[in-house]
Design a protein around this nucleic acid. Structure first.
Lengths: 177, 177
DNA sequence: CTGATATTTCAGTAAAATCTGAAATATCAC
DNA sequence: GTGATATTTCAGATTTTACTGAAATATCAG
């Protein structure tokens, strides 16, 4: 499949952004391609379109499947596996946040908890002890909150996001109670 | 300066997490060290403590200064520059979000806007056109909302975060109006 | 079962990112 | 100004990460 100029630029930019956030460039590019394509593609087609090795596509798709950003599908009359992604940017965002929470945030909470419980902890300066504790609490609160947000319907969230000022006033009221 | 076992593990983990989010490992480690130290440190001391080259520390501190995560300071009777970071995890979080917004999110909004305005845009499939548009709108809303959040006092935010359920009900009420 | 097609694995290569050490530059005390 | 100290720069070395192509494995149709 030949890319249009805009699709190509979108995919390249997405790859670049992925790289800056610790996502492999090929993985991000493949995801962007499927996102724009809007229909299932075979691994061969992906490899040809992006000019990368078939094996690279295989590995990258495995990664995207693990993140649940891509689903396996089949096309009538074609033996090959096809792959597609959601066209719902909210859903994609949720999956990414969920994945990073599991892979990075939760292990961090665990390790910080171990620090607090360790006999060595007393050996730290009061300064360091407090900072480790506060860091853990910060991450914990943020995580709980993200969980709640992710449980909502996209429409609810969109509303909430567009309602910044109202929410602020609401918070102010609650604080005064 | 010799690191205690917990400090060392904290710094190593932080470096690892940084790497996974696209932040140079040394940069993240240096920041973690200053965070735990809680007092200004000279570049020499940082290099010695983390066993990295003095020149590496110099480059990394420049990076941290650009992110405004670290400030230059001086210690009486010592000619050398010293460096310190805030002990307020909220403030650090704000600076990081702000930095990433400027460096990554805003350029992305710009480029997506260019796509929408480009004469080539009409050549995309309706599917792709809609997805590019929705992606931009999603990022835009998220950014505006993040801006508002970051403008709040930490206490207000903490309240909001801890108030997940109440906020959810509030949103539901608003939707029904 | 057999040949054809599709997919995965992985060792080796290529590319990118990071780090170092030496040299250049800057700053300071005297 | 001079020597001592501090800092930055950057070319090259090192390390890490990513990618490729060939071989192995799996799947399927007949």
């Amino acid at each position: 499949m030949e890319l249009t100029p805009i699709s190509e630029r979108f995919i390249l930019h997405w790859g670049e952004m992925g790289a800056r956030w610790g996502v492999n460039r090929s993985v991000a590019q493949i995801h962007a391609l499927l996102y724009l394509a809007g229909c299932p593609m075979a691994a061969d087609e992906i490899a040809e379109t992006l000019s990368v090795a078939r094996s690279n596509v295989s590995m990258s798709l495995k990664e995207l499947l693990a993140w649940r950003l891509v689903k396996l599908s089949h096309v009538m009359g074609d033996r090959r596996d096809h792959f597609e992604t959601s066209g719902d940017v909210w859903e994609l965002f949720k999956l990414i946040v969920e994945g990073r929470k599991q892979r990075e945030v939760e292990p961090t909470l665990t390790i910080l908890g171990e620090f607090l419980a360790s006999p060595d902890f007393a050996g730290e300066t009061p300064e360091a002890r407090q900072r480790i504790q506060e860091t853990r609490e910060f991450i914990r609160v943020l995580t709980v909150w993200a969980d709640e947000m992710l449980r909502q319907e996209p429409e609810t969230l969109m509303k909430l996001l567009k309602m910044g000022a109202k929410v602020r006033n609401f918070v102010r009221r609650e604080k005064e109670e």
